[in-house]
Amino acid sequence: MCTWEEGKELQRVFLRYYKGKEVREDDLEALDTLSNTDYLEYYMENGKLFARAGTIGKMFKAKPMTPTI
C-alpha cells in the first residue's frame, strides 16, 4: 500500500514527466508504477529513454489542483 509520502512522490513524478522528459534513474521506481497503470508511458528518442503522459494520464491537467481550504 502506498504511504502518503509515496503518494506525493507519484504526483511529483507524474507532473514532472507529463509533457515528456528524459528519464532520471532516481524516478524509476515511481515511473514503473505510473507506466504499469497507463498514467505515464515510456518511449525512446535518439537512443535515450523518455516518459510522457499515457492514455489515462492524458485525461489530467498538467498542474495540481489549488487547495480549497
Binding site: 503518494g7 507519484l10 504526483q11 507524474f14 507532473l15 489530467f60 491537467k61 498542474k63 495540481p64 489542483m65
Partner: peptide, 8 residues
C-alpha cells in the same frame, strides 16, 4: 493518489 488528492 493522483486522482483523488492531487490532480485535476
Amino acid at each position: 493518489h493522483i486522482w483523488s488528492n492531487g490532480m485535476e
